[in-house]
Design a protein around this nucleic acid. Structure first.
Length: 260
DNA sequence: AATGGGGCCTGAGAGC
DNA sequence: TGCTCTCAGGCCCCAT
């Protein structure tokens, strides 16, 4: 696989690089750098630079990273443009500006201040039911909140927390520490299943987030959702209306019949 | 250490 | 039709 160099960079919204410091410092840190490799840790994307640093990208709620020709019109809310020596541009587009970019020290996320505290990758072989049981043991917080806590397990947001609880047949209202060994095993399998399935169909493009891949294509997992954004609609398994309740500041989707 | 709450941000959708 | 209000959620910061 060929690698690309960043020949020029421009930042048109300072908030998009707030994790780094100033836009000028960001531009200086990426200009002229070769991208050696691309990795992922949780919801963070890492472009490994030949300076020994990494370009960390977080998409947040509404962020997109897209490849464009230089003369393509700018999509509204394009905040960072990286010109590549391939003659293309890597553009960061983010209406809600919850995402951002930063140049961070090193190539190994385990030693990064930003990612070092992250929990295990749920699709790794090392993530076993026993590991999950240890993470959940003694926690009084509800399961949904624990699944969304990046320091417990990396990479799960609200969509996949709600969907994993459904597939496991466990109410997201339950405290994490109250799960039986059998329920932990089911939740472990459900987390992996929902993530693997969503990756297979290239992610979830729900109505307001409008996720797109680097080519601008939408994903397909929104057609496979069981509970997320299905409030009031019949459960696909039993027909009971899906509930949608605010609990402790967060809203959870679940089937009151299938999830105990 | 664990836990909960507030704030950031824009577009979609509801209500009038 | 057009205004105002509410909500969505990832992640950081702060208080307890």
């Amino acid at each position: 696989m060929s690698s690309y160099s960043i020949t020029a960079a421009r930042v048109t919204h300072p908030r998009a690089v707030r994790g780094h410091g100033s836009p000028a410092a960001f531009v200086a840190a990426v200009t002229g750098r070769r991208i050696l490799d691309v990795r992922r840790r949780g919801k963070a994307l890492l472009l490994l630079l030949d300076s020994g640093d990494s370009l960390l990208v977080r998409l947040g709620m509404s962020g997109r990273l897209q490849v464009h020709a230089p003369d393509d019109p700018l999509i509204p809310h394009t905040h960072v443009v990286l010109a590549l020596d391939a003659g293309t541009e890597l553009r960061f587009i983010d209406p809600r500006t919850f995402g951002g970019m930063a140049v961070v020290t090193g190539h190994d996320p385990a030693f990064m201040r930003e990612l070092g505290h992250y929990g295990p990758e749920p699709l790794d072989d090392a993530f076993t039911p026993a590991v999950l049981a240890e993470i959940l043991a003694g926690l009084r917080t509800n399961i949904q909140a624990v699944l969304m806590d990046q320091s417990k397990i990396a990479g799960i947001g609200k969509i996949y927390a709600d969907e994993a609880c459904f597939l496991a047949g466990i109410s997201p209202l339950r405290s994490a520490g109250s799960l039986s060994p059998d329920e932990v095993t089911r939740l472990h399998a459900a987390i992996r299943q929902v993530l693997a399935h969503s990756i297979e169909v290239r992610g979830t493009s729900s109505k307001d987030a409008a996720y797109r891949d680097s080519g601008g294509e939408v994903g397909g997992f929104q057609h496979h959702l069981h509970v997320y954004q299905r409030a009031g609609l019949p459960c696909r398994v039993c027909g009971t209306p899906i509930e949608y309740r605010p609990i402790q500041g967060r809203r959870m989707h679940f089937c009151p019949h299938c999830q105990k």
